[in-house]
Design a protein around this nucleic acid. Structure first.
Lengths: 242, 242
DNA sequence: TAGTGGTCTAGACCACCCC
DNA sequence: GGGTGGTCTAGACCACTAA
């Protein structure tokens, strides 16, 4: 479980994992300055080059950010990150607007087979299910279903739905200490059911883009599963490969 | 142009660029063993750590591959690469079949505005345009339009279209010495025109997925632009983000 | 000016591969 | 046993930031 203790691994790996765990448990929060490379080297009893190698990895994971002459910082939630890419929905003009969000439903429930397998927990474990509608200028753009492991996101249940705001990831960070750093997405196209076309104000049988996303924390554990559907004709998705 | 000579850049960068150029000009070909780190260090007059840093970059670019105890090799064309991902078209079962390819049209022409801007050349420069149909079990799956800068791909014009085979990138490599290592893709959905639906044997007005891909060589110069269209209902696209 | 990260060096020891 | 890449060290000098 805790690779920071497994002495078969190289030191820079164990150091990387230990630093990742310290960030994950909020010892340093996004925006914070972490100790200098020299201090970390002294503290862990390793050479500065080894510290650099560990930090290099966390930088390329997008968790830390170096600033020459200033120090190394925990990256803040990144609103320009590709995690937010499908806000490119609609505007091909490049202006990025954050859509309004409306929580339609929130409930605690036991994990179904599909949810359990996505989140890699056991069937029946407690999860939280959210339904959310996202709109631009009051026009519905995206209908989302979201599942979270309850033990990590208990605080979400207590929160007034009006307090949610338009973005979930900052909420996860502030209220639950859960940071999303990467995700896998699968895109497919399907035809809108009658209910969906009513919800999204589309013609019957209009094509929908379906984005399934499994989001991971920096220890590569799945923490959120969501399925989003929106009108295919307003959609544009960009990916860099290899 | 040639950053290997720009002495404002760090040595490992110039070394990386010089090695990349040597691979690009086929001094070493895919599968070849390159000189050891020690030899390269001696040859370039830098420390071995600096060589390692340059090689590290090329490894993470997917250009080189290290094998402990054996040496460092130029990677072969990678058929399991995500560059080949949308062969996932159709089979959700995981079996990856390479579709047959049929070259429908090939011609030399001057670059239009759109093509020139994608390939970052001047309008009117000579390019090669290919139209290709891809099929599985003789069922059309994807209609592709492909543009190549003529000066790099002259050999493509001379080749018998029957000799093309089912994959283009190995052909680029073998016949033209051009290696694709990364790409940008943009996905959109549109409605099939009458001609397209005939070609792909679809109902009129069926939704099509459109994948525009700009492919780069290892010096990050665009070498191929293609636009592929296929039936949206058989499509599945996977992406890892961040 | 003091402190930080960025580059570069030189060398030690290890694990692995192949002869 | 000799050569390769993988890890780790210790220290020099530079560029940049902030006080």
């Amino acid at each position: 479980m805790n690779s920071a203790l497994d002495d078969r691994l190289p030191r820079y790996q164990r150091l990387r994992d230990d630093l990742a765990a310290r960030i994950n448990r909020n010892e340093w929060r996004p925006g914070d300055l972490i100790p200098s490379e020299a201090e970390l080297g002294a503290h862990y009893g390793v050479a500065i080059g080894t510290v650099r190698k560990a930090i290099d990895q966390l930088v390329s994971d997008g968790v830390l950010e170096r600033q020459q002459g200033r120090g190394t910082f925990v990256r803040r939630a990144r609103f320009n990150s590709s995690l937010f890419r499908f806000f490119r929905f609609q505007s091909e003009t490049g202006e990025r607007r954050v859509p309004q969000s409306r929580i339609v439903r929130r409930k605690a429930m036991p994990a179904t087979t599909a949810v359990a397998s996505a989140l890699r927990i056991s069937v029946g474990e407690p999860v939280i299910s959210l339904s959310r509608l996202r709109l631009i200028d009051d026009v519905p753009l995206l209908a989302e279903e979201i599942w979270l492991e309850r033990s990590r996101f208990e605080a979400i249940l207590a929160l007034d739905t009006a307090e949610f705001g338009d973005l979930l990831y900052p909420l996860y960070e502030d209220r639950c200490g859960q940071v999303v750093v990467s995700a896998d997405e699968i895109l497919t196209v399907e035809i809108a059911t009658e209910m969906q076309s009513r919800l999204l104000r589309l013609e019957a049988n209009a094509p929908l883009i379906v984005i399934e996303r499994l989001a991971f924390d920096l220890e590569r554990r799945p923490i959120e599963w969501r399925r989003s559907r929106g009108p295919a004709d307003r959609f544009r998705y960009h990916a860099e490969i290899r």
